[in-house]
Design a protein around this nucleic acid. Structure first.
Ligand SMILES: NC(=O)c1ccc[n+]([C@@H]2O[C@H](COP(=O)([O-])OP(=O)(O)OC[C@H]3O[C@@H](n4cnc5c(N)ncnc54)[C@H](O)[C@@H]3O)[C@@H](O)[C@H]2O)c1
Ligand SMILES: NC(=O)c1ccc[n+]([C@@H]2O[C@H](COP(=O)([O-])OP(=O)(O)OC[C@H]3O[C@@H](n4cnc5c(N)ncnc54)[C@H](O)[C@@H]3O)[C@@H](O)[C@H]2O)c1
Lengths: 233, 233
DNA sequence: CCTACTTTGTGCGTACTTTCACAAGGGCGT
DNA sequence: ACGCCCTTGTGAAAGTACGCACAAAGTAGG
């Protein structure tokens, strides 16, 4: 039953590790651009804002790609992480809701450069449908099923108002999309085979407010040196 | 040394709980608008997309605000969570970087309604400085220190390009801001007394890609029934 | 007042995460 | 060819988080 024929790495990479791999990847790509050939776990961890033991353990889930006494080959590690994350192929993205946020997303260049191709924009508002945004013509939401099928959309982005989000999500799912990125402030209900990730700015602000209040309440919390700000999610 | 005079709640609320309180709060506010007076942990958990035991344990960190056999009083719980999160006061927010994203944020109405007042917009581009966006005149980034001081800004939002982010962050911190929400794809370095939360769309997409690849590789992962999509952060 | 029923609050086992600390591996200088 | 020194990879410990299952507490009805 052990299907570990090609690579030594295990099937099960911890979720916490997966969430950090993109951070390492970005740091490594920066190093590569600057011409660095190898990097130690200590240095990379420092750039990525994590503990070096954590970094090593994270990377150990992919395999033994380091060289003791030397560190990691930057290019090789970039490749391994990219492959692990599924970035050696391109992914097709569709955005539903072309308002303030949807437009910002569509116009953002940082996606395409990382292997995410925005293939379609949808909106329900007839004043918006037909507009050209970021080189794409906004389609009517009712064509979602057709387009998702023909364009082979893998990831659906929801940037509609909250009330419409569940409906749009259902349509994405019905059309075969199994990954959804949700910006609307609602909890989406999906079948278990579908992954949903949410980005919720109000929640982020509220978490900050909580800690801000704590600082004000008590007193100055203990201090010592500088730390790196990583996700405290 | 036990300063637990007024409320029974403990000083230490788990981070994971804090991150969920805003979700509960939103669900409860929806209930309140619809005129619901009380709600059971089971029902609220279902709406919020969490396990009911988890919900009860989360709420128990604030105190014993439920009534056995009945549930929780919606209005009372809204108040308690709001107070815990520090939403009984307004928080002043400043946004640095008024590009695609900064504009979307400034124009977004969902902040003000939740006690977050956008007090200032900053940009470095002289073609942008002076523009009116969402009723505010964009100020030059070099006035940041003055404005943050006079407006008593508590939260700084960074929506500049990645290269400028650390510099802008440093200025916020120097000016006394101790909470930062970062949209730029870089790891910010801050003193320990400062909280940073990041929103990184590329990372979210890459995490989705990872799971998408897994689905394609192996087979449908084991599951059963419908689940609610909560943060898997 | 007493019984039946509902729902909270939490003790406890399990699983995941982080961090420490160090043996083992590998390069490099001599 | 050898030994030193650096850095990885990983056991083990400590810290968090989760979710089951149930006693306790409260409501409602007779
Ligand atoms: N703008 C922000 O900075 C921001 C911040 C946080 C959260 N959000 C959330 O993101 C979402 C979008 O925000 P926005 O500011 O872009 O809103 P918006 O009102 O500017 O845009 C929403 C767009 O969705 C379209 N739409 C409505 N129903 C639709 C449907 N059923 N199918 C397809 N399209 C539909 C509308 O026509 C509109 O163009 C909202 O849920 C909002 O709460 C936005
Ligand atoms: N637009 C999106 O949907 C999106 C998505 C993901 C991430 N991001 C990130 O958010 C940030 C902003 O994205 P954007 O699309 O709005 O970029 P943008 O280029 O449209 O806007 C950036 C703005 O920041 C200003 N700026 C540059 N240097 C500055 C400085 N030192 N001080 C103050 N302002 C400065 C620029 O003048 C410009 O107006 C970027 O880091 C980007 O990677 C954006």
């Amino acid at each position: 039953m052990t299907p570990r024929s090609p690579r030594p790495r295990d099937r099960g990479i911890p979720e916490a590790t997966v969430a950090r791999l993109p951070v390492y990847l970005r740091a490594l790509q920066g190093m590569a651009e600057r011409g660095t050939l190898t990097i130690s776990s200590e240095d990379l961890a420092s750039i990525a804002g994590v503990n070096s033991a954590k970094l090593r353990k994270d990377l150990s889930h992919l395999g033994s790609y380091g060289t003791r006494g030397v560190g990691y080959d930057v290019d090789y590690l970039v490749y391994q992480i990219s492959r692990e994350l599924g970035l050696t192929q391109d992914w097709t993205v569709a955005i539903a809701g072309v308002g303030n946020l949807g437009r910002a997303l569509a116009n953002y260049g940082g996606f395409g450069t990382r292997g995410f191709r925005i293939a379609a924009l949808f909106d329900a508002d007839l004043r918006v449908v037909g507009d050209e945004v970021a080189g794409l013509v906004v389609r009517h939401i009712d064509t979602l099923e057709d387009v998702v099928g023909s364009e082979d959309v893998a990831i659906g982005v929801i940037a509609t108002p909250a009330v419409s989000a569940q409906g749009v999500c259902d349509r994405f799912v019905e059309a075969g999309v199994t990954s959804v990125l949700n910006f609307a402030p609602v909890v989406l209900n999906v079948p278990p085979a579908v992954d949903v990730r949410k980005v919720d700015l109000s929640i982020e602000l509220q978490i900050l407010a909580f800690h801000e209040q704590r600082k004000a309440d008590g007193q100055a919390p203990p201090e010592a040196g500088w730390i790196d700000a990583t996700e405290k999610t």
